[in-house]
Each structure stands twice: as structure tokens, then as C-alpha cells.
Design a protein around this nucleic acid. Structure first.
Lengths: 229, 229
DNA sequence: GTCTATATGTTGATAGAC
DNA sequence: GTCTATCAACATATAGAC
């Protein structure tokens, strides 16, 4: 009880280390090879530890995926919503500009990605890979993580584009996510782009493309009959 | 040698049947569960045959994937190019409308998809799943299949949008593919859409979004310095 | 051509020593 | 906490009978 704290807790210091190395390895390998394409053994080896350590810390492969996803996606989503709220505070009662909404949605991913990349910087962003991963373990997780943000951004889009049906805006929003996923999966710019700092180049094109797509939705009659002459 | 042909070839009639059932099963299961997520056993069972039959006809899992991809993608790509050539013939020397180029690129996928779906119609389109599948066997195949079409459509885009750099058009073209992949992977319209015939509803929104994205590229100075005031 | 049986390797997860 | 050793299940692919 009267032990000095410097001696009272020797186990703690080197505990969290391998746990985080496992998360790092999982982020990289799941991102590169997918969930089914990554074995727990390869993952433990990349983290410089044994197979059992991984199962000790996370209990299962699926739980490890959940952990690494949460670690990376939650900050992105919080930053997105924070940006949106800042915009709304500045705008008062006026609708936001579509481009600003798109920016608040897309930019945080690139910023956090750039901040958390000591590595190759060319490896795919895990969350994007997960978004199109068909594995059962993955599809459940996906919606829980992203539905909340979509629900938060949709009203902002509605106010900015009041002439369109909610359903159309929802689809356009999902298409925008498709653009993001495609870029972050590494399917765009096999050329000179892709280095760490100048994500601005691809991001500007991405924002421009998405903004145009959202502001030029096909105008359909407000009622159900879409094909009537 | 003098045998009547009706007796000379009895083995042929029932040959192709299981081979095609295997292709059908592969298309469905690879599409739903990905390449790594589908076992040859599950695939053979879905085709109503044994494991060995699959390996007899295709030699390996990877070769089976290649076969099923080629069967479905080649007709799409041929239709795409045929549509583009028709447009060019009609336009004479004039540049095409961007929307028509986009239509020629996107619509054939939905048409052939609708024509080849006796099944659920809600199962993901294999080629889209493959496009974001990280498996090694898949990434090689991907580029071989799609690079040719992209190379064919890019000049048409250049003539329609001469004020933009080729590199910018190329990126926008890849973004457009991202939209398509996302839709065909089943990530859009979890609502009422998705039935067999009315793909027109989602296709129209897709075309509008992509056309707007392509016609509103950010205008950058023709030289390298993009950020100069 | 298709089957059963099998060879050979890998998987996720666990038990028990330390 | 981390290790080695091991389990049962599953993977791809092949051999040989019919």
C-alpha cells in the first residue's frame, strides 16, 4: 500500500506495445489483402509476435478487425461532423454550399490518413477495402460505422438542394461514397500521384467531381411517375 | 470410318452442361463472397457436381475465375465499343456529347446484367466485386480486361473536353468507373431499387452524376504549378 | 467426365508451460 | 503476456476406379 508508484506497476509499461503493433499490422494487412486474404499467423508475424498473442488480446480475428476499424474510423467521422457543425454555425440559418458539405465529408479521411501513415502511403486505406469486402464479418460492421455519418450529412444536403427528393439525394450521397472508396482502394492514379503530402491534388478533383454530381441531379417530377411524357 | 455421325459422337451432347453450370455457380459465389471467400467445394456443390469436375474443366480456381470473367466482361466491352463507334459514325467529325459517351460506357453493363439474370438479381455483379478484390489472382486479371476499354474511350473524352489535360480526364474516367463499381457491388439503393427490369432508374442517376462530374473538372493552369495565385 | 479417396498444406482457436 | 505444441476443420489439388 505504501509502495512507490514507480515500483508498484512494472507490468504496465510494455503491455500496450504489442497490442498496438498488432493493430498496426492488422490495418496494413487487412487493407492490402482483405479480411479473408489475411491469416492471423501472417498478421502476428508482421507485428513481431506470436499467433497466441493476437488471440489473447482480441479473442478472435473478427474482434481484431472491429478494433482496428473503430480506432481509425471514429476519429474520421468525428472530424467530419465537427467540420459540418462549424459550417452550420458560420452559415446561421442559410443553407450550406454543396461544395463545402462535400469537403467536410471527404477531406477528413485524407487528413487522418496522411497523419497516420508512417508506412508506404501507397497501401490501401483499410476502411475503403472493408467497404467492398464481401466477408460476413465485415458487412455487419460496415453499416454500423457509416450510417450515422450519412444520416447526419443528409439533412444538410436537403437544405442545400431543396428542389430534389430525399431519395435522390440519398442515392447521390451513396455515389459520392463510391468515389471515395474507389480512390482510397488505390484504383485511381496509378501514375505519379499517391505520395503522402500531396493528397490535395487528387482530393481537389474528387471534390469537384462529387460537387458537380450532386448539384446536377436529374430533375424528376416530384410524384412517382418518372417516365410519363 | 463409315459410321453415321449420329453415332460417331455420343460423348459431346452432355459435356458442356456441367461446365456451364460451374461457370454460373462461380459467377454467383465469387460475386457474393469474393474470391478468397469462396471454396471450390462450395462452388461445385452449388453447381450440383463434385469437386473434381471443377478441377477437370478448369484446372485451378484461378483459371475458373478467369474463365467466368471473360465470359461476362468481353461482351460488355464489345458492346461498349460498338456503341461508341456508332456514336462517332453519327457525329461525323464533331466531338461527341459527354453524356452520350458516359451512356455508352455505363449502359451496356446494366443491359447485359439484366439479360443474364435468371437469378436473384440482387446478387452483386461479379466484375464489380473483382474490381475491388485484393486477391493476387484477381488484380492481374483486372487491368488486362479494363485497360483496353479505357484506352478506347479516353480519346473520345479528349475531343469532347479539349480544354482539359489528358491526365485530368483519365482521373475523372477512373472516378466514373468507381461509381459503376460501387453501384454494381450492391452498395447503392438498399431501398426499393434493385429489381431486374427497372435498372433504368438507377442508371439515369448514375449517368447524370458522372456526366456532371466529367463536365465540371477543376480548371487548372496547363502548366505544372497548380497552386500559384 | 465424374466419382471416391486421399495427399498435403493452412486455417482459427486453444491448452498448458513459463 | 507470450511462448510452443496441438486440435479439428477446412483449403486446393491429384490419383485411380468406373
Amino acid at each position: 500500500m505504501a509502495q512507490p508508484t514507480s515500483l508498484a506497476r512494472p507490468p504496465a509499461p510494455l503491455v500496450g506495445d504489442t497490442r498496438e503493433r498488432l493493430l498496426d499490422a492488422a490495418e496494413q494487412l487487412f487493407g492490402e489483402n482483405g479480411f479473408d486474404g489475411t491469416s492471423m499467423r501472417a498478421l502476428a508475424r508482421a507485428a513481431g509476435t506470436g499467433l497466441s498473442a493476437a488471440n489473447y488480446h482480441f479473442g478472435s480475428k473478427e474482434a481484431l478487425l472491429t478494433a482496428v476499424m473503430l480506432r481509425r474510423i471514429n476519429p474520421v467521422n468525428e472530424l467530419r461532423i465537427q467540420r459540418l457543425e462549424t459550417l452550420e454555425a458560420q452559415a446561421g440559418n442559410q443553407p450550406l454550399r454543396v461544395e463545402d458539405i462535400v469537403d467536410a465529408y471527404l477531406r477528413p479521411v485524407f487528413e487522418i490518413r496522411a497523419a497516420s501513415l508512417q508506412r508506404d502511403a501507397s497501401s490501401p486505406w483499410l476502411a475503403a477495402r472493408v467497404y467492398s469486402d464481401p466477408s460476413d464479418a465485415v458487412s455487419k460492421l460496415k453499416r454500423e460505422l457509416f450510417v450515422r455519418v450519412h444520416a447526419r450529412f443528409l439533412p444538410a444536403l436537403q437544405r442545400a438542394l431543396p428542389q430534389h427528393a430525399v431519395r435522390d439525394l440519398e442515392i447521390a450521397q451513396q455515389l459520392t461514397t463510391g468515389l471515395l472508396v474507389h480512390v482510397l482502394s488505390g484504383n485511381v492514379s496509378e501514375g505519379e500521384l499517391g505520395s503522402a503530402q500531396d493528397y490535395e491534388a487528387i482530393l481537389r478533383r474528387l471534390i469537384a467531381y462529387a460537387t458537380a454530381g450532386l448539384t446536377h441531379l436529374p430533375v424528376v417530377p416530384a410524384d412517382g411517375a418518372e417516365e410519363q411524357p
